[in-house]
Amino acid sequence: LEGRTILVLGAGKMSELTAKHLVSNGVRKVLVANRTYERAQELAEKFSGEAILYEDLFDRMHEADIVISSTAATHYVISKERVAGAMKGRRGNPLFLIDIAMPRDIDPACGDVGDVYLYNIDDLNGVVSSNLDERMREAEKAEKIIEDEMNTFERWLESLEVVPTVAAMRAKADQIRTAEMEKALKRLSGLSEKELQTVDALTCAIVNKMLHEPTSRLKNIAAEKDGYEYVEAARYLYALDEAAPKERGGLLRSLLGRSKEAPKTATNEMGDGLGC
């Protein structure tokens, strides 16, 4: 509709609403004709348009690309002959006639004139119904997309529980490893610091390898439907919801020379020192 001209016949509410819609969609110029010229002026001013005398209606019709007719007349006000005359000034450009009056303002025979396209209330209702059906179908698709995304989001929220669970599994395994290392070191003597580091790295590597497969699978399945059940099962099997054991490892840290003041030592390929 960009740059088009419309001619509105009638100055009632329906005419105003139709003109408002067309102007909002790019119509450039609005012509308004009404039996009462003052009413035509009032409506034209709302759209910065031009009011024309009712007697000049058919002399100006050729200027319009779209004619909207909505009068209270009880007979046809636009005849086939009048439209045919207006088309002589259109130079082959099409003319759209939209009859929204009840009873109809435009003679149905006008649609037989070349390059003239006539639409009435029944045609518009069909378009509205078709558009409504299409919107309903699109709404159903949108609802399905929203439902799928909500399910995905809910599974993602549930999968977040796997992060602290995996961390707790590793923390508990390292606590057990550290405690067992302390017991063993009490029975061992004469180990050099390098040998202690090797034993520490070895036990750390064993823990990592033991936990790698279950934690990887837990992460992968956590985002699936009912994945949270696997997370809960892991927490139950590893007793992660029970009170955490008291931190240990003082003896091992002392033997390895890893007090808070001491810098971290180099590691070998089996692990990264105390703590996995």
Rank of each mutant, 00 (worst) to 15 (best):
E140F: 08
N120T: 05
L95R: 02
K141P: 01
N125I: 04
N120W: 08
G126A: 07
E149N: 15
I106V: 10
N93H: 15
D148N: 13
L124M: 11
A101W: 03
L124K: 08
D122W: 06
M102H: 04
E140H: 11
R137A: 15
L124Q: 09
L124D: 00
Y119N: 00
D115I: 04
A142Y: 10
I106L: 11
A109R: 14
L95N: 03
D122A: 13
E138P: 01
V128P: 00
M136K: 15
K144L: 09
R135M: 12
Y117C: 08
D133N: 14
D105N: 10
F96I: 15
L132I: 08
G126L: 06
D148T: 11
D99Q: 13
M102E: 11
D112P: 01
G126W: 00
G92A: 12
N151P: 00
N120A: 10
Y119L: 09
D115F: 09
N120V: 06
E134T: 06
R137V: 06
L132M: 14
I121S: 02
V113W: 11
P94Q: 11
K141S: 12
E134C: 07
P103I: 10
A142H: 10
M102A: 15
D122L: 04
N131R: 04
N93P: 01
D112E: 15
Y117F: 11
I98N: 01
M102W: 04
P103W: 05
N125E: 04
K141M: 08
K141Q: 12
V128T: 00
N120K: 06
L118I: 05
C110N: 01
R135I: 09
N120Q: 05
M102P: 00
N93A: 14
D123A: 06
I121G: 02
N125G: 07
G111L: 04
S130Q: 12
P108V: 10
R135E: 08
A109I: 07
L124P: 06
A142I: 12
G114M: 00
A101Q: 00
V127K: 10
L118D: 04
S130C: 00
I98L: 11
D105T: 05
D112A: 15
L132F: 03
N125Q: 09
L132V: 13
I121T: 10
M150E: 01
V116T: 06
I146M: 07
E138N: 07
A139I: 08
S129T: 11
D148V: 10
E147H: 12
R104Q: 10
D115P: 00
E138I: 04
G92Q: 12
A101V: 05
D105Q: 07
D105P: 04
M150P: 03
A142T: 12
E138Q: 03
A109T: 07
I145P: 03
G114N: 12
D115T: 05
S129G: 01
F96Y: 09
D107Q: 07
L124G: 09
I145A: 14
Y119H: 05
E134K: 15
I100E: 01
M136V: 14
Y117T: 13
S130N: 06
V113G: 04
M102Y: 10
E140W: 03
P103C: 03
V128S: 02
